[in-house]
């Protein structure tokens, strides 16, 4: 009996799964935004799920799909806990930057200096329009209590 799902088809699926896993890993390692890191982790799970389903189909077995259901469950749990953590971390530091939490890094890893990161960041190119209007220096006497932006008032 010849199965319609050939080895070549299986290889196609495995390659797409490998590409998704690699790209997710790239995002998790290199991006600094907590939300983008969370999305990259979910993408790695997607790549693995694709691999499992293709293997299950190849062997004519439903266990691969059961594994994928477990992966979906774990992804849902991960999403809830990760987003709860994002809220807590944001309330502490008012930013989504992971580098602000580098004091819990591994022993022996050098700390990233903010000045160097500023120099390595991509320059902002203002698009023509309201963004590129000149910024005027504020005039008048400065009030006694400096007005804090709302983000800093949450402590």
């Amino acid at each position: 009996m010849i199965d319609a799902f050939t080895l070549d088809l299986l290889r196609n699926y495995l390659l797409v799964g490998a590409a998704l896993f690699t790209l997710g890993m790239l995002g998790f390692l290199s991006r600094r935004n907590l939300i983008v890191m969370f999305l990259s982790a979910e993408m790695m799970l997607q790549g693995t799920a694709l691999t499992l389903i293709a293997f299950g189909r190849y062997h004519g077995n439903l266990t691969g799909q059961v594994f994928t259901i477990v992966i979906l469950t774990v992804a849902a749990c991960e999403a809830s806990i990760a987003l709860a953590l994002v809220v807590v971390l944001y309330n502490r530091r008012s930013s989504l930057d992971v580098t602000l939490w580098q004091d819990i890094r591994e022993e022996g890893v050098p700390a990233a200096s903010p000045l160097q990161e500023e120099s390595e960041a991509e320059p902002i190119e203002p698009v023509p329009g309201p963004e590129s209007y000149p910024i005027l220096t504020p005039a008048g006497i400065e009030p006694a209590h400096p007005v804090q932006p709302w983000l800093e008032r949450r402590k």
């Binding site: 290199s30 600094r32 930013s95 989504l96 992971v98 960041a121």
Partner: peptide, 9 residues
Amino acid sequence: ALYDRAARA
């Protein structure tokens, strides 16, 4: 934001 414009390593 700075952290969206600078990737880590």
